[in-house]
Design a protein around this nucleic acid. Structure first.
Lengths: 251, 251
DNA sequence: CCAAAAGTGTTGAATTTACACCCATGA
DNA sequence: TCATGGGTGTAAATTCAACACTTTTGG
């Protein structure tokens, strides 16, 4: 906060910066991994409403042997960070996400007992049908996002942050579509918002908001079968970006 | 997008995840670095208005020898990512930031010719007085943020993204204070917003907005010396968080 | 006095929010 | 027919945006 003497001249500066893109002895000792927080909306036990859930894997080695942890793994030399996250997610849980975004790089010195690990963490959204197909076994299990056990490493903190990002982004972005199929009713879309944000939303106002945003396009199909007026099916408007990540649309 | 067969069972999953926090042969070949995009508001050439500027360092080695690049360097084994960014920033430019936040991890396979480098990039804000003291030499120079030369690596992309984050965050956060001193007038605060967002702001509405937000506290001092009515000095309200980073306030 | 920026008031537009009410279907 | 959600209308409340006007200093 308070300014003190600075004595490093410009020349030593550029010497340092030249090392920036070559591994030093120090950074070689730091290992790099990728992990992913995966969210899906799944029916509650009482099946009355959907709730946010995420899959965790059980650790079979020390440290934290037996504890639940985020799925993750190493980064291969020939793949980008997002590719590593996507590949690892399929390998560990069998899930294919409809949305994948980098969350944060966690690198505190003591976050992994014994060695030094920097984890690039991604977060992903998968559709409900996709989540239903996912294998669940002794070593992979779905947990309610708001009520997790004590996880390995700093993974509770990571999930908290991912949850915050999801909820924040839900309010100004269109990621809700990532939970749904090709076409959907406005009720389904609204229920996604309600489940994530954990508060009721006025259907009338929600409809106008969505229609005004140009994010969705009405199809000419209605969904029959319910014992009420058949709702119109909508489609995601592909000409509008899903989320605004600024100049970072590609990787 | 379309679902295909998934055959990986849960058991191989947890085997993978157990490697997540130990270095594999692959990830050991990836080197890790930290870089920082540093912003300051500095007087224009004609001194009529302030504009966003950032310091770059000249590379003295291949690849990209002679090109301008973001200050950066390796991460030491015993320091956190933010500590590495802060230390490196002082070493290369002599600047002490009032604000430092992680921006993004860049890790495309081909971003550094020859070797594989993952860069954890931070962005920082420094006060104008601080920026004025910074040494400028052959190998460190300030550039207008909106008009940069071709930089080394993917650094143009990185700066674009940092600029977008700064401008986005300026609209819903209180980071403007990070450019100013302990006390400031509402005009000074408004001029920060105008310089960053590159558009004029109505002084009357801006005043009400700020006063209503509880982000600033009026002191009992006025700033005399101008040839007009002396403006009141304000102070940043420390009981309100500078920015909302969710559960990530510490590291 | 005048110029210039500080600070206050006011008004209309746009947006948000709450809620009444009609519509179309299955049972 | 009734129950149920689909869908439209509307009005109050709040926020936003533009700009007129008064205040206080230095020159």
């Amino acid at each position: 906060m308070t300014a003190t003497a600075r004595t490093v001249p410009a020349d030593s500066a550029s010497a340092d910066s030249s090392r920036a893109d070559a591994a030093s002895a120090d950074s070689a000792r730091i290992s790099l991994a990728v992990s992913t927080v995966i969210f899906a909306l799944r029916a509650d036990a009482d099946a009355t409403a959907a709730s946010l859930r995420l899959p965790l894997v059980r650790r079979i080695r020390e440290p934290f042997k037996g504890r639940w942890a985020l799925p993750g793994g190493p980064i291969e030399a020939a793949e980008s960070l997002s590719a590593a996250a996507g590949r690892n997610l399929v390998e560990t849980t069998g899930l294919r996400p409809t949305y994948l975004e980098q969350l944060y790089a966690f690198g505190d010195v003591d976050r992994s007992p014994g060695d030094r690990v920097v984890s690039i963490v991604y977060w992903a959204l998968v559709r409900s049908e996709e989540a239903d197909l996912a294998a669940e076994g002794d070593n992979v299990r779905w947990f309610p996002a708001d009520d997790l056990p004590d996880l390995a490493f700093d993974h509770n903190t990571i999930v908290d942050y991912a949850l915050w990002r999801l909820r924040t982004k839900m309010e100004y972005s269109r990621i809700a579509h990532a939970f749904l199929g090709e076409t959907f009713t406005l009720s389904e879309l609204r229920e996604v918002h309600e489940a994530v944000l954990r508060r009721p939303i006025d259907p009338a106002n929600f409809r106008r908001q969505m229609e005004g945003s140009k994010a969705i396009i009405a199809t000419d199909q209605l969904l029959t079968g319910g014992r009420h007026r058949p709702p119109r099916l909508y489609r995601y408007n592909a000409s509008v970006e899903l989320t605004d990540n600024g100049p970072l649309t590609s990787s």
